[in-house]
């Protein structure tokens, strides 16, 4: 975009006094971020990897001993680990496309200049402002046996449902809760993306006589591809480490159906004092996260590749 021409850049490279001065300035300006990365990202990652290769008896005075991949081997044979992986995947495969499709539908609906669009946008975005712990509790109470949701269901002739206390409904209930929060949030990103599509494309398609559906699939979707993928990846990252609603409302239950990876790791490390297995799972989670985030970073578009 506005990067310095190659020739000028070359003369400022690290060899010349000016290049050295620039490098020094860059180091000073970047130092706080680099220190934070080492402190908050690198050290805990190393801690987790190191711990996952050790095994010790909880509370014992002997230092934990190096066991190589043994903890991982045990983990891969543990049924509860695979159940946690399975539930995490089921939850993510449903919740992320669902949220993004609904967010896209609302973004398109609310960027057509309908009366009051700004107000409707703001209202739909509002749940994103409520901290996750607060909205989890709010919905937890609303979904209780004699709460208002069941009140509405009985009023229209459907029997009251157990929701969070049923192994069959718990994942669906959590999807409902996080979607109430997420849809409006991702909708705002997509509205911003829609606004960036130049009007001429829409005019051209109108002159060609294309209907709204045709316009949506051959203009909007292709031109929105990048923000759409970005939002999908970012949503996936945040839902993969979902914690607050599970810890506050279900503790992973009933029957482990909501025992998503992040909660399982927490539970293993603190409630079951199984820190080594917890670390091994964390390493697996980290590998998945780094892979997803790398895709996300490419989708951000750095402004230097063209």
């Amino acid at each position: 975009m506005t990067s310095t021409p190659k020739a000028v850049q070359a003369s400022r490279r690290n060899g010349s006094p000016r290049g050295r001065r620039n490098l020094l300035a860059a180091i000073v300006f970047l130092a706080p971020s680099v220190i934070l990365i080492v402190l908050l990202r690198l050290i805990p990652t190393i801690t987790a990897i190191n711990q996952s290769l050790h095994q010790g008896i909880p509370g014992s005075l002997n230092p934990p001993s190096f066991v190589g991949g043994q903890v991982f081997a045990q983990l891969f044979q543990s049924a509860s680990f695979w159940q946690s992986v399975e539930q995490t995947l089921i939850f993510n495969v449903i919740v992320n496309p669902l949220q993004i499709i609904l967010a896209l539908a609302l973004a398109v609906l609310l960027s057509r200049g309908l009366p009051g669009s700004r107000l409707w946008r703001t209202i739909i975005f509002m749940p994103a402002a409520v901290p996750m712990a607060g909205s989890a509790i709010l919905w937890g109470i609303a979904l209780e046996p004699s709460g208002p949701i069941n009140g509405v269901l009985t009023a229209v002739g459907i029997p009251a449902q157990p929701f969070l206390t049923s192994p069959h409904q718990v994942v669906g209930s959590i999807i409902l809760i996080v979607s109430w929060i997420g849809i409006g949030y991702w909708m705002m990103f997509l509205i911003a993306g829609l606004n960036d599509i130049p009007d001429v494309y829409y005019e051209a398609s109108r002159i060609d006589g294309a209907g709204p559906l045709r316009t949506f699939f051959s203009i909007t979707i292709p031109l929105l591809r990048r923000p759409l993928l970005f939002v999908l990846v970012a949503d996936t990252v945040s839902n993969f480490v979902l914690f607050a609603p599970v810890q506050i409302l279900t503790n992973g239950g009933p029957q482990g159906q909501s025992n998503f990876l992040m909660y399982n790791i927490y539970n293993q490390s603190f409630n079951l004092s199984n820190a080594y297995s917890g670390s091994a799972q964390l390493v697996i989670l980290l590998i998945i996260m780094i892979a997803i985030v790398t895709v996300q970073f490419r989708l951000l578009g750095t402004g230097e590749d063209s």
């Binding site: 680099v34 805990p44 990652t45 990252v237 945040s238 992040m262 964390l282």
Partner: peptide
């Protein structure tokens, strides 16, 4: 820098 901060904080919160 951006990649390391994009890894969700929750993922390394426990060892940290």
């Amino acid at each position: 820098i951006v990649l390391s901060f994009l890894v969700p904080f929750e993922a390394i919160a426990i060892p940290l």
